[in-house]
Design a protein around this nucleic acid. Sequence first.
DNA 1: ACAAAGTGTTACACTTACCGTAACAATTAT
DNA 2: ATAATTGTTACGGTAAGTGTAACACTTTGT
Lengths: 137, 137
Amino acid sequence: MSSSTKLSTSVKALSYLAIEDKPKNSTEIAASVGINASKLRKLLSMLGKAGIVKSDSGMLGGFSLAKKPNQIHLQEIYCAIEDRKAFYLNVNDTNLKQNGASEKINNIFLNLFSEIQVEIENKMTSITLKSIIDKII
Amino acid sequence: MSSSTKLSTSVKALSYLAIEDKPKNSTEIAASVGINASKLRKLLSMLGKAGIVKSDSGMLGGFSLAKKPNQIHLQEIYCAIEDRKAFYLNVNDTNLKQNGASEKINNIFLNLFSEIQVEIENKMTSITLKSIIDKII
DNA sequence: ACAAAGTGTTACACTTACCGTAACAATTAT
DNA sequence: ATAATTGTTACGGTAAGTGTAACACTTTGT
């Protein structure tokens, strides 16, 4: 799954939990968002480590939101499921020539990509789960 | 090669052509930017179709810039080498549920990604090959 | 105590994508 | 003719992604 697909899938699962407003097991959630239950558990496990959802084992177990929807924004969801920077962009730094031109160009692009990533992160920080739910209800 | 790597590699090749200011064959350019000559020819071939470089076969053939460096900006380089939108972001649209929530969330993300792409394109349009060369010389 | 229902994680076969290189037709100057 | 070059295709090898199953561990109900 690409980063962007992971993000939208996670938001679907979280929206489902917010709307249902009671613990749901991975099978139900997976059926709702349309992916495999095992795969979904991997995603939700990461969201759990980030304190976004909480999970309980056992017969009455399942997943539920650990915070209110207006306290969850896209940026933290993204960080929870992806270790790399937002929508990672990279350059080819193999075979760098000794003259340094390639290295300088790499740095120029790394700076450009950093700027883009900051903008993306700002945008994602401003969007909460609640604002998304409000749009789909 | 990722989109971003393609872009930086292309800019390296174009910068080399701009600085040398005479036709260069793929072997020389490839050695300068540190990639395979055949692979580079694929990139330059696409840049040629976009009118950014011109190429000549034969013994005295090679590649040279078709426009001045201040008339070439990153956005057109990107469009030349990549058919998809800038730094393509996508959602999972398989197994869409009948309730429509997944579809609505997909649309929300597609809109968000479109906004991000517009910002990236604006940024890339404002950066010319000349401005990059000025920084590396 | 024991069974049932969960999560969290690992493993694995399968497919897909990617990479680097080679090869070759077409083209052009000498 | 010959040599050098582009543009494109093909291909074997390798890496990455996918979907599923499996299983240990935890928790609840009886």
